[in-house]
């Protein structure tokens, strides 16, 4: 049991094992952006309404603004930076689908949209339209892009292979 102001904890970030002192009073969002420099995860409303800060925690989309940094102990976290396959310059199929469908306008909501989409496709390989809408209900886009975004999710579902999803599957608990 740790009770330090900056407890040292173990977690996995984008597939890499970490052991770090994390600021106890910080949210995961702030920790990712201000300590680790991972600014792809966006800071929108900070109260769980907009989904711009969505990351995967043990394979499930969560609002990183509502997770305390010390709560990620032993968890596997994936951010948008980890989505692109390592080494290469290629994009992940979900990212390609968003570009293909013109589902990106200002781009602020896009990292969260992509992470939520990956979370959906991990659980449901062929979501129907209503499942897609429900899955993305927690991600707001203020540029009016929902139609293209739903199209992108459908295209992503058609394009992805198990290989594209495997990295995100680790540490997923059974319900």
């Amino acid at each position: 049991m740790s009770s330090d102001l900056t407890p040292k904890i173990k977690f996995r970030l984008n597939g890499i094992d970490m052991e770090k002192e994390v600021p106890a009073g910080w949210t995961l969002l702030r920790y990712l952006r201000e300590e680790l420099g991972l600014t792809g995860t966006k800071c929108g409303c900070e109260i769980g309404e907009c989904g711009a800060c969505t990351v995967l925690m043990n394979g499930k989309p969560v609002n990183s603004c509502l997770v305390m940094a010390p709560q990620i102990e032993n968890a596997s976290i994936w951010t948008i930076e980890g989505v692109t396959p390592p080494g290469g310059t290629a994009l992940h199929p979900v990212q390609k689908a968003f570009i293909e469908c013109d589902a990106v306008h200002c781009g602020f909501c896009t990292p969260g949209m992509v992470m939520t989409t990956i979370g959906l496709l991990l659980q449901n390989k062929k979501p129907d339209n209503s499942q897609i809408k429900q899955a993305l209900a927690g991600n707001l886009c203020r540029c009016t892009g929902y139609i293209q975004i739903f199209e992108a999710v459908r295209l992503a579902a058609a394009m992805i292979s198990e290989n594209d999803m495997r990295p995100f599957r680790e540490n997923i608990s059974e319900n």
Binding site: M1, S3, D4, L5, P7, G25, W26, M68, P70, E73
Partner: peptide
Amino acid sequence: MNAVETLNPTNLAQALKA
């Protein structure tokens, strides 16, 4: 929002004690 202390127990007995 600084200087927050957190307790991170790994079992119920520890949690109740905290």
